[in-house]
């Protein structure tokens, strides 16, 4: 597998950083190389937040921020597309939390050289977690569209980050999103 660079966009409190970490953890559990880090700043609830994951079969050395991502994951559809679309590679993937259809999103972002996937992660999160924390659902959707890591590795990573009922609910969110993502 060549190196895959993923940029996560959300707002403080939605768990974009944790999502980036979960993907890297899942990859590392599988023996792959991975890196995950937040865009370093003082995080405040509601403020736009960005995080990065890199996954590869080869060691990763660079620590430069990802400016030309292969994948952009948007946790909050109200974010400005100018922010999250920046640098997304031609042929890349945009995964977005929305009730809109794939075609509507394509039209909205004005790019036909990319793949678009949509999932209603907010509804899934409300159902499973009782709160609009969509990060784990977005991870579930991502690994369906782009199988860089296995679903069970994601579940293992979730059990490392959460415990008991919360872990259970997050695993539910992952599975539901995995099933319902469309592209």
């Amino acid at each position: 597998m060549p190196r895959t660079e993923i940029r996560w966009h959300g707002r403080g409190g939605q768990g974009a950083v944790t999502a980036a970490i979960i993907v890297a953890q899942a990859a590392i559990f599988e023996g792959k190389y991975a890196q995950a880090y937040p865009e370093f700043g003082a995080e405040r609830r509601g403020a736009p937040v960005c995080a990065y994951s890199r996954v590869s079969d080869e060691p990763i050395y660079t620590r430069a921020p990802i400016t030309k991502p292969d994948v952009v994951v948007v946790l909050d559809p109200t974010l400005s597309k100018d922010i999250y679309m920046k640098g997304l590679k031609s042929g890349g993937l945009l995964l977005i939390n929305t009730k809109k259809s794939v075609d509507e999103v394509k039209k909205m972002v004005g790019r036909d050289d990319i793949k678009v996937a949509t999932v209603d992660a907010t509804s899934i999160a409300l159902q499973t977690l009782g709160a609009p924390i969509v990060n784990t659902a977005m991870v579930g959707a991502l690994v369906k569209v782009l199988p860089i890591v296995k679903l069970e590795s994601v579940e293992k990573a979730i059990s490392e980050n959460f415990s008991g009922r919360i872990a259970e609910a997050n695993i539910q969110a992952v599975r539901k999103a995995y099933e319902s993502v469309v592209w």
């Binding site: 970490i21 890297a24 953890q25 190389y33 890196q35 995950a36 880090y37 937040p38 370093f40 620590r63």
Partner: peptide, 8 residues
């Protein structure tokens, strides 16, 4: 750049 970056 390292203190907060997860890696194997």
């Amino acid at each position: 750049l390292m203190s907060h970056t997860y890696e194997p």
